[in-house]
């Protein structure tokens, strides 16, 4: 395999846990009781993120990405394994972790500025100070001028940026994102990707991005974790040795294409298993009727 121009690290090879990891996910197993029996959503998943690192987690729909997101964010319990922040075990939501959700999550009854100031208000920061800080983050995501607008007046991409600014305003040590751009069109997605890169480089923000989009994963990450479909396991970790600072233009480079092809070859098998599963379920549903 000498022709492969980048490093491949097998999941079952010695774990790549940097000694200084700020986030460590160790041997997580999460099962759900369903009417059709027990479903193992994630199966012995381990990964770690170093300070300032941007890690992408990629896998087909239904492979347990959101489950992993909720476990790390402390919104789900009843799992085996441990989640540690800076070496300390966490149970439940942790102030060091900021979450950005897949679904639209702005508060429709608050304008942009009040949405972004929300975590600061909760923390009891004085009014003037929290608005100052909120304005800074509104600007950071490129929404200055929209402070007084309500979410209903904004596009999907703008709303997602409001959520992002709201989470960033709490200044979490670790940013956790679950397919934040999944509902957006391709152009918006690329441009928002640029924005995330810019912000990440500016804030040196440690980030764990969950996605099913290969381009997005390669464009943004230092390292990509490829997951298998049902049960969700870590299939492979791929270091992305593309130069930084990056922008969306990198998408057209040759090295980028090779990474995408490589990850796709890993993912293809999983995605098609996911598809078969889906189709057979539809078929059975049809039979039942």
């Amino acid at each position: 395999m000498a022709a492969v121009p980048f490093e491949r690290i097998d999941a079952d090879a010695p774990k790549l846990a940097p000694a200084n990891a700020i986030l460590t996910v160790d041997d997580i197993v999460k099962r759900f009781e369903t009417p059709d029996g027990v479903l193992t959503a994630i199966d012995h998943v381990s990964l770690s993120v170093a300070p300032g690192e941007f890690v992408g987690v990629i896998g087909p729909s239904g492979c347990g990405k959101s489950t992993l997101f909720n476990v790390i964010g402390g919104l789900l319990d009843g799992y085996d394994g441990t989640v540690k922040v800076a070496g300390e075990r966490v149970r439940g939501p942790h102030p060091a972790i900021g979450m950005i959700f897949q679904e639209e999550s702005t508060f429709p009854w608050r304008n942009v500025l009040d949405n972004v100031a929300f975590p600061l208000e909760i923390a009891g920061m004085p009014r003037a100070e929290r608005y100052d800080r909120a304005r800074h983050f509104v600007k950071l995501v490129g929404l200055d001028g929209f402070e007084r607008r309500y979410p209903a007046e904004l596009s999907g991409g703008m709303r997602q940026r409001v959520s992002m600014a709201r989470t960033l305003a709490a200044q979490p040590k670790i940013l956790l994102m679950d397919e934040p751009f999944a509902s957006l069109d391709e152009q918006t997605r690329l441009l928002l990707g640029d924005k995330v890169l810019q912000i990440q480089q500016q804030l040196k923000q440690t980030t764990l991005l969950i996605t099913h989009n290969i381009t997005e994963a390669v464009q943004l990450s230092d390292r990509v974790v490829v997951m298998t479909y049902r049960p969700g396991k870590v299939k492979r970790m791929v270091e992305i040795n593309l130069p930084r600072p990056r922008s969306s233009e990198i998408v057209s480079s040759e090295a980028f294409g090779r990474y995408v092809a490589q990850i796709w070859s890993d993912l293809r098998e999983e995605a098609s298993r996911g598809l078969d599963d889906e189709e057979s379920r539809k078929l059975h549903e049809g039979e039942k009727r």
Binding site: G74, L75, P93, P95, I97, M99, F101, F107, I122
Partner: peptide
């Protein structure tokens, strides 16, 4: 919406 409740939980309300 579930996700709004989760936003609150993630901010430790």
């Amino acid at each position: 919406r579930r996700v709004l409740i989760n936003v609150g939980r993630s901010f430790n309300l």
